[in-house]
Simulated scan of single mutants.
Amino acid sequence: MSSLVVLVGNPRGGSRTHLAAVAAAEAVGRRIGHEAPPEVVDLSAIGPHLFTPGPSPTVEVALELVAGAQVLLVASPTYKATYTGLLKAFLDRLPGGALTETVALPLLVMGSPRHALAVELHLRPVLVELGALVPTPGLALLEAEIPDLDRVLADWTDRVAAQVTAALERSATT
């Protein structure tokens, strides 16, 4: 089955974004028949390496894992009505077209519903620019919904699982 990777753009380790992203990837994975746990690239662990001059083996491994994913769930907290600069710095290291064979699922964790469009207006376009197929609406997850995460993810996966499966099938035949 497809490789399933989670990219977490929160600068703090052990964040609610990390928790929600892994849970969302696992929920989607179960629905598309991918039972193995997702591989996780947590930028809080490699952030300092993103900003040092010269190549970093840690960053290179993370870039290869992300670029090689068949399904990539990209998650960030909402900062200033968009995703984090840490996530942007990482994505800027990917060459154009690096996600061409990838089905990407954007997820933003936010404090206010007024930022709900940020997942579609900011995160989706950068993934598409990198070549990813983004066949579903992103998940705009309110911090207040995290205690009810199982229900939120069940509703979301009900809406997106068929589209992810169809995108994977199209990708496999091209």
Rank of each mutant, 00 (worst) to 15 (best):
A75M: 06
V41H: 00
H122G: 05
T78A: 11
E120L: 01
L73R: 01
G97L: 06
A25I: 13
F51P: 05
A24V: 14
G131C: 00
A104K: 02
L91Y: 09
A144I: 13
P135C: 04
G131R: 00
P147C: 02
L73P: 01
E39W: 06
P113M: 08
T100H: 13
L72D: 04
L94R: 05
A62M: 03
T102S: 05
L117C: 11
A36C: 03
E145C: 10
M110P: 07
L121G: 03
P38C: 09
T136K: 10
P95R: 14
A24P: 15
H122W: 13
V71P: 07
Y83R: 01
A36H: 11
L105Q: 08
H115L: 08
E35F: 14
E60C: 09
L91S: 04
A144P: 00
L91H: 07
L63S: 04
E35G: 07
M110T: 12
L105P: 06
Y83S: 04
F51W: 02
L123K: 03
A75Q: 03
F51V: 08
G111C: 09
E35H: 12
L107A: 02
L141T: 04
F51K: 13
L127P: 04
D92R: 03
Y83G: 03
A24M: 14
L133M: 13
V59Q: 01
E120D: 04
P106V: 12
P77S: 08
L73I: 11
Y79P: 07
H34Q: 15
P135T: 12
P53R: 14
A140N: 06
D92N: 14
S76H: 07
L86W: 09
T52A: 12
E64W: 11
D148F: 15
T100Q: 10
V71W: 07
G96T: 14
L130R: 04
V74W: 06
L63C: 05
S76E: 06
E39N: 02
P95V: 12
P53K: 12
G29D: 00
K80A: 14
S44M: 10
P113E: 15
A144K: 07
V134Q: 08
R114Q: 13
G68I: 08
P38M: 08
T102P: 09
V128F: 10
A140T: 13
L91D: 02
A89W: 10
P48F: 03
G29A: 02
L63N: 03
E26R: 13
V40H: 01
G68F: 07
V134A: 01
A132P: 06
A69K: 02
G96A: 13
S56H: 10
G131I: 09
G33W: 05
V103A: 10
L141R: 05
L123G: 06
G111A: 13
P113V: 01
G54S: 07
P48I: 00
A104P: 03
S112D: 15
V59T: 04
V66K: 02
G29C: 05
L142W: 13
P57R: 09
S76L: 03
A118F: 05
A104W: 10
L72N: 00
